[in-house]
Amino acid sequence: MLSHHIQINDHPFHYLGWGDRNDPVILMLHGFPEYSGAWAEVAEDLSRDHHCVAPDQRGYGQSWAPEDVNAYRTGKLVGDMVALIEHLGSRPVMVFGHDWGAAVAYALAISRPDLVSHLIIANGVHPAPFQRALAAGGAQTAASQYIHWLRREGSEEQLAEDDFAKLSSLFGASMDMGWMTPERRAAYLEEWRRPGRMRGMVNWYRASPLRLGQPGEVITDLPEMPTHTLRVRMPHLLIWGERDTALLPEATEGLEDYCDNLTRVTIPNADHWILHQESHRVAAEVRTWLKRL
């Protein structure tokens, strides 16, 4: 594994790289509240025959963390990854997203299909099925109520209190955190303590256009989400940890309508933190899928 510091659009960014640079590239996009190191286990496995690249996305880790909420609009996050792909000099690339990283991965695949050869998602959601689930007032609406709290001004200070006790509690809520060793927690704390990172991380939620009501509230005036403008045209693999309590199966219902070539794989004993709990299984599923294409 090598650590790289580069300039993207005149701002500092950091990424980790595994494997031979001449091998096919897999761009790995982490979610909240993780950072590039979240991909270590999966990347070490896949780097036997791929060049795995995991950036600290905007607001995270050692990358640029602007204070302004508008700096975290989807188009800007996607622009960072377009510039990184261009920096790598290899296109198109495979893109692998998890959690919020999946949101960027989907947006990149939809808006710049020329840069994405394959799309892989682990416990992440396409914007259209997810928005419908959030607006339905059912189980996903209830499971996502924490978003209201995160969007409030000052939530970043509360997350950081008592050595990030609130963030740690949110991180592991109803999930299996057996993978979080003392060494790994120390690494996370190092990243979370960097100046401005808590605000940057929470700004992803504040900048998102996703609409969320209260439990039981149905939102009926959603914008149009046509399949032709939100289409995933390249081969797409969705790996799903069945025990996820943050993202529920209903958040992916109807995904087939938006995809030309979708493969679903369910892993029963994993939850939202599938990349850590079942890293070898995840890598094996990716390899199996690629061989079948």
Rank of each mutant, 00 (worst) to 15 (best):
L230I: 07
L230Q: 08
R231Y: 09
R231W: 07
V232G: 07
V232D: 06
R233H: 07
R233Q: 12
R233M: 10
R233N: 11
R233A: 13
R233P: 02
M234V: 09
P235R: 09
H236F: 15
L237N: 09
L237K: 04
L237E: 11
L237S: 08
L238E: 09
I239Q: 00
I239L: 15
I239H: 02
I239W: 01
G241I: 07
G241D: 07
E242M: 14
E242W: 09
E242G: 00
R243E: 10
R243N: 13
D244R: 05
D244M: 10
D244I: 06
D244F: 05
T245P: 01
T245Q: 14
A246F: 14
A246C: 14
A246S: 15
L247V: 12
L248H: 06
L248K: 06
P249A: 04
P249K: 10
E250T: 09
E250Y: 04
E250W: 05
E250G: 00
E250V: 11
E250N: 08
A251C: 15
A251S: 15
T252V: 15
T252Q: 13
T252D: 12
T252L: 11
T252A: 15
E253M: 08
E253C: 03
G254L: 13
G254P: 04
G254N: 12
G254S: 04
L255S: 08
L255N: 04
L255P: 08
L255C: 06
L255W: 02
L255R: 03
E256A: 15
E256G: 10
E256F: 01
D257K: 11
D257R: 15
Y258N: 04
C259G: 00
C259R: 04
C259M: 06
